[in-house]
């Protein structure tokens, strides 16, 4: 059974149909990419999955449970977490605090627990702290616990975003353009890192523009254009799909025809 099932979802902004009748699925342990030109509706899909946007049609199921139009909190608790296209960390907080905010829904005590500093609060806080440190260690940020998020290097900030997403206890990570702004070496590291996440049991759905990354990392690829799915399949299938080439480069057949004629 698929872990995430997106079925015939539609999102309209006034007269603009941002996503229309889109269906796809992600199986446990897979790395699936969504690609497409700018404005194709990829991030809108992420926003619908994470509960920021209401669906105008269709449904989304996660782990067999309907999560369409649920509140972001319920979706986080169900086990989906995401990162952002332009890094969005809690800048004026420390690295470990960023991760602890990720654990927010899992830490069970309230204002009065905090005020009275109850034993239960201290125990749970300790557990959360230890978990945060473990997550940071596993992701290679163990040395930066005390740093402030804004002081980290770019690649590390990306990692911290992922660490924060993992700390929520998510099973499915949605990564929105994780390789954006990275040099080849950094994207290489990132890819190995994503593979290691998959090996740890996370399922990954990512949006990415860097084709060298997408083609090597993905188990399957979905291609969107103008809010519709235009192709799907294994990387090599997608790469040779004329529809996809058309969406990215324009209608090539026209040019090649003209060239043929010129040659003749």
């Amino acid at each position: 059974m698929s872990l995430l099932e997106v079925s015939n979802v539609t999102k309209k902004f006034g007269g603009l149909v941002a996503v229309s009748d889109l269906s796809f699925e992600v199986n446990p342990g897979e790395i699936v990419s969504i690609i497409g030109p700018n404005g194709a509706g990829k991030t809108t899909v992420f926003n619908m999955i994470t509960g920021l946007y209401k669906l105008d049609g269709g449904y989304i199921k996660f782990d067999g449970q309907d999560i369409s139009n649920k509140k972001p909190r319920q979706i986080v608790e169900a086990g989906i977490s995401r990162t952002f296209q332009n890094i969005r960390l809690f800048k004026d907080m420390r690295v470990i605090e960023n991760v602890l905010v990720g654990e927010h829904t899992k830490i069970q005590y309230g204002v009065f627990g905090a005020l009275l500093n109850t034993r239960q609060k201290r125990e749970r806080e300790k557990k959360a702290l230890q978990h945060a440190i473990d997550v940071l260690e596993s992701i290679g940020l163990g040395d930066y616990i005390d740093s402030y998020a804004t002081n980290l290097a770019y690649g590390l900030q990306r990692r911290l975003e992922i660490a924060r997403a993992i700390a929520t206890g998510a099973k499915l990570l949605l990564l929105d353009e994780p390789a954006a702004g990275m040099n080849p070496q950094e994207s290489e590291d990132l890819m190995n890192f994503i593979f290691s996440l998959r090996d740890q049991g996370y399922t990954i759905l990512l949006i990415e523009h860097d084709m060298s990354v997408v083609m090597r990392i993905s188990d399957r690829i979905y291609v969107m254009d103008y809010g519709k799915k235009i192709a799907s399949g294994k990387p090599e299938e997608v790469a040779n799909n004329p529809e996809v080439i058309k969406a990215y480069l324009g209608d090539i057949s026209k040019f090649t025809d003209e060239e043929d004629e010129a040659d003749a």
Binding site: K91, T105, L115
Partner: peptide, 27 residues
């Protein structure tokens, strides 16, 4: 007591980025 607890972190998260805090499950 408040600032060094879950409550204070949530408040600071709302300050730093209210959209992300929502997506981390903070009301």
């Amino acid at each position: 007591l408040i600032v060094n607890s879950k409550v204070g972190r949530a408040i600071k998260a709302v300050r730093d980025d209210s959209l992300v805090s929502t997506l981390m499950g903070v009301e």
